[in-house]
């Protein structure tokens, strides 16, 4: 427990690496993108649609979202473990993750998803 009072600022830890943050950001981007790809695949391919039917009342949406969340969390755990003590080019990692997130937003839009 810190001995400083609640209103006293303490100096920022300069030495903290950005690896775990980069892992969280990139995993979120990839997880989101995997959701969009799985949504399109389950819409276009009957075999995937059937495979994604984890919970019948909800239909393939249950499998698409559960699988995407699994991909996201697994990737996050692996990247965090590999990058925990590293300093990465955060600008590049952030841009890649953001592009994946924006693509996810666009690819889940049915008129765009229907182009595939």
């Amino acid at each position: 427990m810190s001995s400083q009072s609640a209103s006293t600022p303490k100096p920022a830890a300069q030495a903290m690496t950005n690896g775990s943050g980069a892992a969280a950001v990139l995993a979120a981007g990839v997880g989101s993108f995997s959701l969009a790809v799985l949504a399109i695949a389950s819409d276009k391919l009957p075999a995937i649609k059937s495979l994604m039917n984890f919970y019948r009342p909800t239909g393939p949406l249950s499998g698409v979202t559960t699988t995407a969340v699994f991909v996201w969390l697994m990737l996050w755990i692996v990247l965090r473990w590999r990058w925990r003590d590293r300093n990465l080019a955060m600008g590049r990692v952030g841009r890649v993750a953001l592009v994946l997130l924006v693509l996810s937003l666009l690819l889940t839009f049915p008129p765009i998803a229907d182009l595939f």
């Binding site: 920022a12 903290m16 997130l101």
Partner: peptide, 24 residues
């Protein structure tokens, strides 16, 4: 949440990480 919980005020020293979190 995870990024902020880890870095807290130290986020000021990582402007690109903060920008990524804000964008998301």
């Amino acid at each position: 949440f995870a990024v902020f919980n880890k870095h807290r005020r130290n986020l000021r020293n990582h402007p690109e990480l903060r920008a990524a979190v804000l964008s998301f």
